[in-house]
């Protein structure tokens, strides 16, 4: 059954969209990530214009982050103070990102920007995760327990404007969280992702936050940054397709329920290794498309 998407202006199989939503939802439930980094490339692969894929994706991120944050909030795992600081930076970052997006779109380079951002960031994060998780797996197998050294970086403690974060049990400068927020906000607007895959490791390793509040706090700020990015994409680029967003959300909701159940039965190290592998594969595929000679060197763009 085909459905016509009013903003993307194309006709796609409704089951393909629901299936993609369910597949990505399954993986996001299993690994506890937003899944934006999988969904945007999948949409582009299905023929959705990259600009519409990125714009629409922010709505799907909002929906899944709201669901996620509710669960963490009930358990008290959200550091609102830290969240608002990250969010302040994130809002500024989303502004910058959407305008860079608009500018490069007029130059015809937005597809390249999206692909390059994906290759670079997925490459770095996926590579690091892969190395880390294989080391952990090897050590576990060798019998030595993995070292739990969360050594806090000293340079963060020397910065001015120090604040006390009760929930995270931290006393650090307000500048690094804001900077982190700006960076992830830009990426969120350009790549159509929540940015959790960068935010979560950065919160643990750079800010030194305890792991239990990291995911809830990151989800909390992602909701707002994605909302700002989505609003700006709709307002300046007219690239948000609600019909597409709704179908993806429905699929993702169902998929995530199954994913969470499977994820609970697996070991944390195994999950992390699998997720790292997935990130590296997506990165490799996108990188290959940039390097290989395209089937058609020419592309058309209708000027409105």
């Amino acid at each position: 059954m085909q459905i016509y998407l009013p903003i993307a202006e194309m006709s796609v199989s409704i089951f393909l969209l629901l299936g993609m939503g369910a597949g990505v939802g399954f993986l996001s439930g299993m690994f506890g990530v937003g899944g934006g980094f999988l969904m945007t490339p999948l949409l582009i692969f299905a023929g959705v214009p990259p600009a519409v894929a990125v714009g629409t994706q922010s709505n799907q991120i909002i929906a899944s982050s709201v669901t996620g944050v509710m669960a963490h909030w009930r358990r008290g795992n959200v550091d609102f103070q830290m969240g608002f600081l990250l969010l302040g930076g994130g809002a500024a970052g989303a502004f910058i990102g959407v305008f860079v997006f608009k500018w490069l779109r007029s130059l015809g380079q937005v597809d390249l920007l999206i692909s390059l951002s994906y290759v670079i960031f997925l490459g770095i994060v996926g590579g690091l995760m892969l190395v880390e998780s294989f080391n952990t797996l090897r050590k576990t197998r060798a019998g030595t327990p993995p070292k739990q050294n969360r050594r806090r970086r000293d340079w963060v403690h020397t910065w001015p404007l120090k604040m006390r974060f009760r929930k995270s049990r931290l006393y650090i400068s307000a500048i690094p969280p804001v900077m982190l927020g700006v960076g992830v906000g830009i990426l969120s607007a350009i790549m159509g992702v929540g940015g959790g895959f960068i935010m979560v490791p950065a919160m643990i390793y750079i800010l030194g936050m305890p792991t239990n509040v990291v995911i809830g706090t990151s989800l909390f700020q992602i909701i707002f940054v994605a909302a700002i990015a989505g609003l700006l994409h709709a307002g300046t680029n007219q690239t948000v397709d609600v019909v597409l967003a709704l179908l993806l959300v429905v699929g993702a909701v169902i998929g995530a329920q199954f994913g969470t159940r499977v994820g609970l039965r697996m070991k944390a190290e195994q999950l992390r290794a699998l997720l790292a592998l997935l990130v590296v594969v997506v990165c490799f595929k996108l990188g290959l498309d940039l390097v290989l000679t395209p089937a058609d060197l020419f592309s058309l763009a209708v000027i409105q």
Binding site: P6, N59, A63, V66, A227, G230, A234
Partner: peptide, 25 residues
Amino acid sequence: LAHNLPWLYGLMAVLLAVAAGWGTA
């Protein structure tokens, strides 16, 4: 709506997403 009132449309899309997420939770 998306082309004539893009900001209102964007806001509605965001609220719809929040409602969908909330409903799911």
